[in-house]
Every structure is written in C-alpha cells, then in structure tokens.
Amino acid sequence: MIETRQLTKRYGHLIAVNEINLSLKEGDVFGFIGPNGSGKTTTMRMIATLLAPDYGEAYVCGKSIYNDPREIRRLVGYMPDFFGVYDDMTVIEYLEFFASAYRINGPGRRKVCEEKLELVDMAFKRDAMVNQLSRGQTQRIGLARTLLHEPQVLLLDEPASGLDPRARIEIRNLLKKLGELKKTVIVSSHILPELADVCTRVGMIEKGNLIVDGYVDEVMRKARQQIMLQIRVKENMEKAAALLEQHDLVSHVDIVKGTIDATLKADTFDYSSLPTMLISEGFQLTLFREEEVNLETAFMSLTKGLVQ
C-alpha cells in the first residue's frame, strides 16, 4: 500500500529525512513516533506529494509520487498538524466545498458530508461558522474533510493535538475503525500510550533516521533487550544490591525510592536464577517484577534524545 525507498530530504546542510525505507500493507495502522523536528511531517508530506524528495522513491497503492501525484492525492487523505480553515464559511459549506473539489457532486454530496459530520460527532455544528469552533472541533472538521473522498490511505499528522480527553478517545476509536475498514493509516503523535492502543506497527524516527520500524510486539521486544527488574527485600537492601551487582546476568544496579532497579545484561531473557539466589542467601523478597515496557519506555530506551 505504501512503500518508500531511501526517501531523503535535505534543507541545505540539514538532512531532514535520511534514506527512510517503509513498507506498509493494507489495514496497517502505523504509528510514527519522534521528537519535534525529527522528520515525521516531512516524510508524510513527501508521501502526500506535497514535497518533492531530494532522493529516493515512494509509492502509494503502486503509484509513484513522481509519476502519478494527482492519482495519489485521490487515494490519500492528508491531515496536516496545523491546517487553516475558511473562517467565513459554515461547517457544511466548508465540507461541501471540499467534497465538490474531490468531484463528489449531485444530491449525494450533502449526504456524504453529513455522514462524515456524524462520524466525527460534529453534526450538531452543521450550520455553525467555522471560526466559531473550538480547536478540538476544528480538528474534527479537518478529519471529516480528510475522510470525504473515502481515501484508501490516511496520513494524519498529530490528529489528537488540542483535543480534550473524550475527543482523544473518540479519535482513537475512529482510528481503530479505519484499520478495521482495511485502510492504511500513518499517524503521528506525541501521546504514545494512545498509539500503542490503535497501531499495529510503529516507527521511531530521530534526526531524520528511522531507527526502529516494526510491529508493536517486535518493537517492545527490541526495547526489552535490556530488561530491568524491580526488587524489594524485607531487610539489608544494600547487601542484596551488592550481591546482585556481582551476578553474571546483571549489568548494573540502582536503589531508587526503596526499590532495587537491576538492569540485566543485553540479550538476557532468562533470569530465574536471580530470585533463587536471593532466597538461598536468606533474603525475604517482597517484590520481584520486570519493569513494564510500553511505547514510552520503548521510545526512551531506543532513542537517544537527539534533535536537529
């Protein structure tokens, strides 16, 4: 559905996107994660044919961004992170304008617009002026506009930004629904727990380089290459920590707020000998657990915090 090959964009000496290779199938919901200025928006804009790459190639549904930009625009719905709206129009006029621009004409056009308004839960604002909408409502109208022409591919740049918690949950559900409808979605967000719920795949980008790309489980597994254990003993915490530090499986140990954080050596997955050793040394364990890995911790462990 979407394929990029060594997609590169430079601004002078700055490499905004560096040889990104992506391959997404129908129904994939791809979470694009990275700090501000890491190259997410630039990548999306190149796939959306708004920005010409300096090097590399991208295909959407088999169409090249160089040869078939107009066909790609027919297939893609792109919602930028910040987009303007026509303040002097009503909501329904705004949607009808874009529907007509997508050549949706005739009596069905109004119906399509109203369906999309229902979908984003904005039907009650149908005749309101666009400039009277809140930020979150404008965001939803933008999403409705993006969905008007039933695109096969959706590129959503920070769709949840500015939304209240309820609206975020609704957007999350909508993304799940789009995935179920076999649409391919690339969605960028800074709110990582939300992405974990809806995405089938994630990619982490830093300083223009795609450093991780894979299914959510794979990425979590990668992040778990250095497992951290949280251990509490009833007495002699320092002694237990010293003992753990000497163990072959342990890389290093910290005591944080009354808990021993023991980081295991890379590629260590079987750590069953550690609780056995502690118990045999006479320590009474009150807590022994593996630190939970979510997208946030995965992001923190896999990226270096580099920005450009």
């Binding site: 066909e71 625009r73 893609v76 792109y78 930028p80 303007g84 026509y86 874009f98």
Partner: peptide, 17 residues
C-alpha cells in the same frame, strides 16, 4: 486569504492541478 488562512496545503492536496 489562502496564505493568511494557511489553507494552501489543503488545496494542493486535492487531486487537481
């Protein structure tokens, strides 16, 4: 109006020249 309203990106995304 398009420049001030930052609506050109939305227009350029349309399947029209």
């Amino acid at each position: 109006d398009e420049v001030r309203g930052q609506t050109l990106a939305s227009l350029m995304m349309l399947p029209r020249s």
